[in-house]
């Protein structure tokens, strides 16, 4: 936890607050009353088995599901009725599980597609902004590939590009859906370093993850989902120590 501010202020709203979120795919209700927060500068892991509702939660926050109900607030501002592009323009960045790189666009064009204006944090300080060159420093692999088509990249390279593309929008809050899924262990390590770097720069991050090994390195707190409901919440340290909880909601 950071040091308390010198002068007392009214408590600032969290970067992301989700309350009683319900969501449906067709007729099937996937989320039931999901409630959680991500504080400013915090990395929070949303964990659970396949089909528990992790990706659905992220999509629902981003406004990508046709049918959802509940409150989603970004720095106190209600966004639940907004369209995805409006939510993105409020500083919410989303990297999907399946990366969704534009395969006919080059790396540079993919990055340009994500470009948005610079932003400030809620307290008025400027938020980190990213240019293409900044991102090439963060992901040196991409620099060599700048004219490569997205479709001609390996899975690991695409995983970097999808994060970089989201950062081009200068987000304040980042939703990372399973960044460690389906990539080689070496890439997973690089991804963990990147997340810690972004946290250092002040971003607030919601991470969906199945791998406790990955989550414990990067996250401060965790929520465990099962069948679309939050079943447990606590710090990452509490989770790693609690074998019972892990067995109930994660182990198979």
């Amino acid at each position: 936890m950071s040091a308390p501010p010198a002068t007392p202020k009214p408590p600032a709203p969290p970067a992301l607050a989700v309350g009683h979120l319900d969501a449906w795919y067709g007729a099937a209700q996937i989320l039931r009353g999901v409630t959680f927060t991500v504080g400013q500068g915090e990395v929070v892991a949303l964990m659970g088995r396949n089909g528990a509702g992790k990706s659905t939660t992220m999509k629902a926050v981003m406004g990508l599901l046709p049918r959802r109900r509940g409150a989603v607030r970004v720095y106190g501002r209600a966004v639940s009725g907004l369209k995805p592009f409006e939510i993105a323009r409020l500083g919410v960045g989303y990297t999907p599980e399946d990366r969704r790189i534009f395969s006919d666009l080059t790396v540079l064009e993919n990055l340009d597609a994500g470009r948005q204006k610079p932003r400030r944090f809620a307290d008025g300080t400027p938020a980190p902004t990213w240019t293409r060159e900044d991102l090439f420093k963060l992901f040196p692999n991409l620099a060599e590939l700048r004219h490569r088509l997205g479709g001609r990249m390996s899975g690991g390279e695409q995983q970097m590009l999808t994060v970089a593309r989201t950062l081009m929008g200068n987000p304040l809050v980042l939703l990372l859906d399973e960044p460690s899924e389906g990539v080689a262990p070496v890439i997973v390590e690089a991804m963990a370093d990147t997340i810690l770097e972004l946290k250092n720069r002040g971003l607030s991050i919601l991470l969906s993850e199945q791998n406790v090994g990955f989550a414990e390195i990067v996250s401060d707190r965790a929520y465990l989902l099962e069948k679309g409901q939050i079943r447990w919440a606590g710090t990452m340290a509490e989770l790693t120590e609690n074998a019972d909880v892990q067995r109930s909601y994660l182990t198979l």
């Binding site: 369209k83 592009f85 993105a88 999907p96 969704r100 534009f102 064009e109 994500g114 929008g169």
Partner: peptide, 22 residues
């Protein structure tokens, strides 16, 4: 950039929305 966005939209319009494009 408009052209790139149009080409991107031919593939994945939803992702484009999530990146802040109307």
């Amino acid at each position: 950039r408009f052209g790139a966005l149009v080409r991107a939209a031919t593939q994945d319009r939803e992702m484009l929305g999530a990146l802040g494009v109307n």
